[in-house]
């Protein structure tokens, strides 16, 4: 058998082991090459598909790079004002308790302007899942300093490196929220390796399953990259993330009740 005919035999509908889920739309994503948002979107879509909850899932997108998340997942979406996604999700989940409601927020959206909304949604223990994508920078507006920007990290608004004496310290949001009685499941994940993506998908499934039981909020932080903002290639960004982000934002489950 020649190599070509062997390939033809393998590339056959019945041998498919991995393909795009139909919960993801065909629209090309606007994200930069290598952006973690794409992987997270896919992971969420695959879990929605696996759990067969497409008709019952409502997403709330933020302001920031993922404002257009509604162009990629084939579910009903609400697009929130900057930082306010947890408020929208609160009402949606209270008014339609049988639905699976999630917010998808970046670090500027959730950790800066939306601090009050996330804090109180967590404190009330709303039956929602929150995806918090922490890449330590404002992506959409062009790479400015975020509350999660690391000490010394160079951004457009900390061009000499973040000076914690004048700009405060990088905020560990998950640790803060895990202290609240209203949070049920708080975990910090990543998505840079196949193993990390599989683990992330498990966390997503757990989050959606928790919403059914009405016992508090599931908060899933995903440490990700922003190669455009960090001014590194996608592969180098992952290396930088492992070296610099993971020590300050350690991966793992902080709370699971």
């Amino acid at each position: 058998m020649t190599a070509t005919t062997e390939l033809k035999n393998i590339i056959n509908e019945e041998n498919v082991v991995y393909k795009k889920t139909s919960v993801l739309l065909d629209n090309e994503m606007h994200y930069c090459p290598g952006c973690t948002h794409g992987v997270i979107h896919k992971a969420i879509a695959e879990v929605i598909d696996d759990m067969d909850i497409q008709e019952k899932t409502i997403g709330v997108s933020p302001v920031g790079c993922s404002v257009l998340a509604y162009n990629y997942l084939d579910i009903d979406w609400q697009q929130a004002a900057h930082g306010r996604a947890p408020a929208l999700a609160t009402a949606t989940s209270r008014l339609m308790p049988e639905k699976y409601v999630f917010t998808y927020q970046g670090d500027g959206d959730l950790a800066s302007i939306g601090c009050a909304e996330i804090m109180h949604a967590c404190n009330r223990g709303e039956s929602i899942v929150v995806f918090f994508v922490n890449n330590a920078i404002y992506g959409m507006t062009g790479g400015q300093m975020a509350p999660t920007t690391l000490e010394g990290q160079v951004t457009a608004t900390s061009p000499y490196g973040r000076d914690c004496q004048t700009t405060g310290f990088p905020m560990r949001i998950s640790e803060m929220l895990a202290m609240l009685p209203g949070t049920r499941f708080v975990t910090r994940e990543s998505a840079e390796t196949p193993g990390a993506v599989r683990k992330l998908k498990k966390a997503i499934r757990k989050g959606f399953e928790n919403t059914r039981e009405n016992k508090g909020i599931s908060f899933i932080e995903i440490v990700g990259t922003c190669s455009s903002g960090w001014k590194l290639s996608p592969v180098k960004s992952n290396e930088w993330m492992k070296e610099n982000m993971f020590p300050y934002y350690p991966l793992g489950t902080l709370k699971d009740e």
Partner: peptide, 23 residues
């Protein structure tokens, strides 16, 4: 459903979420 929100800002955005559901 009656919710005392954490702020006027949150309250109006809860309204946005609820209104989005056709409620």
């Amino acid at each position: 459903v009656v919710v005392q929100a954490e702020s006027e800002v949150a309250a109006i955005n809860m309204v946005y979420g609820g209104a989005s559901c056709g409620k």
